[in-house]
Nucleic acid binder design. Structure first.
Lengths: 233, 233
DNA sequence: CTTGTAGGATTGTTGAACAATCCATATGCT
DNA sequence: AGCATATGGATTGTTCAACAATCCTACAAG
């Protein structure tokens, strides 16, 4: 009865923790629940998501579920194949390139043209670095990945623009999808903790230009590694 | 029966040209129709949009209409006041500041770090400049405003990133909303046609740094003018 | 082996219904 | 009169049930 597609398997095994999900409207809560499942990797890229099945799992109506899914489609977390269903997005090599193109521009610009001396924002950046170092020490690799995300979010926050922060949040969600296509989480994220420290230190010293250059190299290397991994399929 | 709210008046007078509207799904078409009405200024900022009324006007069901409106809310074209309705967004002075903050970062970065010599993209930029000059010569001020938008879109296109272009499209849609709160379209847009030419010329000469600086001044001045106009309410 | 044609399933869309919430008005009290 | 409270109507938020359109699969025919 329940159709199982090649890339996924049934959805029934998912916890879809309804409890911890926040959001004011029902559709919003449903979207948050599914987004979390996706970015946490419990729903793998390529998984098909029939609205009727998800609606039942989350205890909402099909209409509400469809509204939530439309939302996630605009966020690029899901993709819609008209008349064929909605799937967890499967970023390809061009997506990787474009996400890095956008990140390079936004993050470098945030360093170069962000508020020059905002102690509280720089402290937040430092906190993200520390978080990553502690996670490495503890050997908690998912936490390392999270800390990395917090670092880049804090970097863009230097620009002081809610709109840019929101855009960055989207790009980072897409990054998690990209990572979930290649599961060597540990090897990938660990070396960047040290580079985060270096970028942060340069910003603390007020040398924005050097920080920007360091970050540019950093992003180039990360992209190159991902592209290589993606080339092997 | 039809409630008329202070800021708007009834919606019945709108053409809501169903014919020219494209889009694959019904909700998409409905969203496009409403977005067009808003950015073209036929639906003024602050106008209340009852779903039932809009659904009837567009000939779609209420469910579909609500999905379309949710989409426009995420685009910041509309805002939702929970349990109180959906309204055409009314950007305030902080929104103006933030939109310009984001634009300054993205547009300057696109100039500085865009593909250095992409003749076709630079030609598109030049075309937008010419379009503006022709519009000025013809005294067609709405066309001047459109050409300006095309110019800035072409600027971001230098970066070669679809994701950034999409983000820019959102920011430009918001700009139109900002303009519609102060109707001196002519006085505002005309002086910038010359500056577009200067920026474009500098890029054509390969002097990215000067172009970037010129654009930074340009955006600062535009923002200052808008903030002044907004301060007067 | 290709073409064509049902069959079944899922998506896209609609209409109607109902609870929850808000606004404005009317009511009652001091 | 002035103010708090109750009440009614309207709109939003959400659900349910239905149906048309589309697609995939399997099977039959050439």
């Amino acid at each position: 009865m329940t159709v199982v597609d090649p890339a996924s398997g049934s959805l029934a095994h998912l916890g879809l923790a309804r409890s911890a999900v926040t959001g004011s409207t029902t559709a919003e809560r449903a979207a948050n629940a599914v987004r979390e499942e996706v970015v946490e990797g419990r729903l793998r890229p390529g998984t098909r998501l029939p609205d009727t099945e998800l609606a039942e799992l989350l205890g909402v109506s099909r209409n509400t579920m469809r509204e939530a899914m439309s939302q996630l489609v605009t966020e690029r977390v899901l993709v819609r194949h008209p008349n064929r269903g909605v799937y967890v997005a499967t970023p390809n090599i061009d997506d990787v390139r474009d996400v890095y193109r956008a990140r390079r521009l936004i993050e470098r610009a945030a360093i170069r043209w962000g508020e020059d001396a905002d102690p509280v924002r720089i402290a937040a950046l430092r906190a993200a670095v520390t978080e990553g170092q502690k996670a490495v020490a503890a050997g908690d690799w998912p936490a390392v990945a999270s800390a990395n995300q917090h670092f880049h979010r804090a970097l863009v926050a230097l620009a002081g623009s809610p709109r840019l922060e929101q855009q960055m949040a989207l790009l980072l969600a897409e990054m998690r999808l990209i990572f979930h296509r290649m599961p060597e989480v540990r090897e990938f994220h660990e070396p960047f903790v040290g580079r985060n420290d270096r970028v942060c230190a340069l910003i603390e010293q007020g040398d924005r230009e050097a920080a920007e250059q360091e970050l540019a190299d950093y992003l180039d290397e990360a992209e190159a590694q991902l592209l290589e991994a993606y080339a092997k399929l």
